[in-house]
């Protein structure tokens, strides 16, 4: 029972483990939203995309027996939602924030509708890689079982940062996001670039959703997502549209979300529900501290509706 000997040290350990575990959906959704927002559009529907991804990932994993196929299916479902958002928004006079809210309702509804038969059965989950093999302590080993998707996310964040800065695609994307007029003058098809950006954003959000149903908590239920999609959208603003900062912010949020259960495990149950809201309070607090009414945020894409 060496696990119990940790006592109070179990709290920071659990927070660390939680940070890695809980942050993965945050990470994927915020990276996806980062791509979308760089192109000058905001997709609030990622909450719906996330739930839809969780459902389709779980369903395909259950039916095919392969969790990676499930991840792919989740991504494709997310991409379809992204394309839908992009198509509707490319019509004149359509508000992208309102469409996002509509797609959020629609995505959640559709996922619940189609997901009913998959609440009971157990689908194969994604594998975890044990990084804690060196330790004798069960708690440490448990904390360091890192999921493969998290590692993909860790690689993806610096790659996106590099791609935004150093590739032709990244430059086109940023041009479209910063000034649609300039992009038009250069001869780029703005709507096509935005469609591509929103679709890839949706794909990543769908993959983030599949993490929820295939790794942690690891099953499909209707209460699976509690606003991760929306928090991730706020997180992109906090991370200043920088993929690497998105990664650190996701870790911070994962840690905040894990604080409540971690404290509960050492016997502090007072204010359990309030600790559950810690990520949201933290987001709000950070947004209050970092926003200003007098200037737009540094690094904000010029075409973005939220900062105008």
């Amino acid at each position: 029972m060496s696990g119990d000997l940790l006592g109070w040290w179990g709290v920071p350990l659990a927070v660390l483990a939680g940070a890695i575990r809980v942050s993965t959906p945050f990470l994927f959704v915020s990276l996806g939203e980062c791509i979308t927002e760089k192109s000058g559009r905001i997709n609030l529907g990622l909450e719906g995309t996330l739930v839809m991804g969780a459902m389709s990932g779980y369903a395909v994993s259950y039916l095919s027996g392969s969790p990676w196929l499930g991840v792919l299916a989740a991504g494709c479902a997310g991409a379809v939602f992204g394309i839908l958002h992009a198509l509707i928004c490319s019509l004149p006079r359509v508000n992208d924030i309102a469409v996002g809210i509509a797609l959020m309702l629609f995505g959640i509804g559709l996922a619940f509708f189609l997901g009913k038969p998959f609440i009971q059965p157990q689908a194969p989950n994604l594998p975890s890689i044990p990084f804690g093999w060196w330790s004798e302590n069960a708690q440490v080993r448990d904390a360091l079982r890192v999921n493969a998707l998290f590692i993909i996310g860790v690689i993806l964040a610096p790659f996106l940062l590099w791609a935004f800065r150093n590739t032709r695609w990244g430059l086109i994307l940023r041009t479209v996001g910063d000034s649609a007029d300039a992009a038009l003058a250069l001869g780029y098809a703005i709507n096509r670039v935005r469609m591509f950006a929103t679709a890839s954003g949706g794909f990543l959000a769908g993959v983030g959703g599949s993490f929820l149903s295939l790794s942690y908590p690891g099953s499909w239920s209707e209460g699976l997502s509690s606003g991760q999609g929306i928090t991730a959208v706020a997180l992109v603003i906090f991370a200043r549209w920088n993929p690497m900062l998105c990664f650190w912010a996701s870790l911070l949020f994962g840690g905040a979300a894990a604080l409540g259960p971690a404290l509960q495990s050492v016997g502090i149950t007072q204010g359990y529900y309030l600790f559950n809201a810690a990520p949201y309070m933290l987001t709000l607090l950070i947004m209050i501290l970092t926003c200003s009414r007098d200037r737009t945020l540094a690094g904000a894409p010029g075409e973005l509706g939220v900062t105008r």
Binding site: G227, I230, T231, A234, T283, L284, M287, V306
Partner: peptide
């Protein structure tokens, strides 16, 4: 009004 925080996101939080 005072901090320029986007109201859609803050209200949802």
């Amino acid at each position: 009004h005072w901090r320029g925080v986007n109201e859609t996101i803050s209200s949802l939080l």
